[in-house]
């Protein structure tokens, strides 16, 4: 469903993502893990066709993200780090708008919007302005706009950041429900989240994939936290060592 090959993104001399490859098959929920600044958001933006990669390729739902961007856009649902809401619209108006630009036919808009209001528990706030919603509701509207057109692939960038524990549990439940029909990529730096909802883990650090594995195999007897810290800190140590060697210490 998703095939990423040696994806890289450079801004001038700065390398945001140097080498990311992984794959995901249908129905999987992939936890995309990494410390802040590892290149998670950049990678995700490339997969969502927002940023063009500097090199490498990826196919999403069988289409190339560069040469067939529009086909990819028809088949993905994408929630950026901050939910892309229009504050002056009500939830209902907003979802109708998204339904239209995502290519849902006019006859189906109302039905699809009702469906998604129901799935994301938004019915009670449907007539509220987006700017008056609490963070938890904003995030839910963000997820609603990502799934309204039943995309094959759903890409969520840190959907639970800044939420209270109760809201986090709600959102996780929603994500777990998505797996039945969709392939999900979930970027996060919250480890328990991955353990509870994901079937597969991809850990990236400094713009490179350091681990790609099914969650069961990876954590045999160890906690995900240990694995994560090993991957990330051993990388960090190497970097530190080579630096201290270079400076003659």
């Amino acid at each position: 469903m998703i095939e990423v090959k040696k994806l890289a993104k450079k801004y001038g001399d700065y390398v945001a993502v140097s080498d990311v490859s992984f794959s995901a098959s249908k129905g999987e929920i992939v936890g995309f893990l990494g410390p802040n600044g590892a290149g998670k958001t950049t990678t995700i933006r490339m997969l969502a066709t927002y940023l063009p990669p500097s090199s490498g390729t990826a196919t999403v739902a069988g289409y190339d993200i560069q040469t067939q961007a529009d086909e990819v856009r028809r088949r993905i649902g994408y929630l950026p780090e901050t939910p892309p809401l229009y504050g002056e619209m009500t939830v209902l108006e907003y979802l109708r708008f998204v339904a239209q630009i995502r290519g849902i036919s006019r006859a189906d808009v109302t039905r699809k919007v009702d469906e998604v209001l129901d799935r994301c528990f938004l019915f009670d706030v449907r007539n509220k302005l987006c700017q008056h919603l609490s963070r938890g509701y904003r995030q839910r509207v963000g997820i609603a706009q990502a799934i309204i057109h039943d995309p094959e692939v759903i890409i969520l960038d840190e959907p639970t950041s800044g939420l209270d524990p109760r809201q986090i549990i709600d959102i996780r439940k929603m994500i777990a429900n998505l797996a039945q029909h969709h392939t999900v990529i979930l970027s996060t730096h919250i480890l328990p989240e991955v353990q509870t909802v994901c079937t597969k883990v991809v850990i990236i650090n400094r713009g490179r994939v350091v681990v790609e594995s099914q969650i069961g195999e990876l954590t045999k007897g160890r906690s995900l936290e240990q694995v994560f810290l090993e991957c990330v800190s051993s990388e960090g140590l190497q970097g530190g060592e080579s630096q201290s060697l270079a400076s003659g210490v």
Partner: peptide, 12 residues
């Protein structure tokens, strides 16, 4: 406000 990201990743 980041809504351009929504428009840019929609089939428009």
């Amino acid at each position: 406000r980041g809504t351009f990201e929504l428009l840019a990743t929609s089939p428009l």
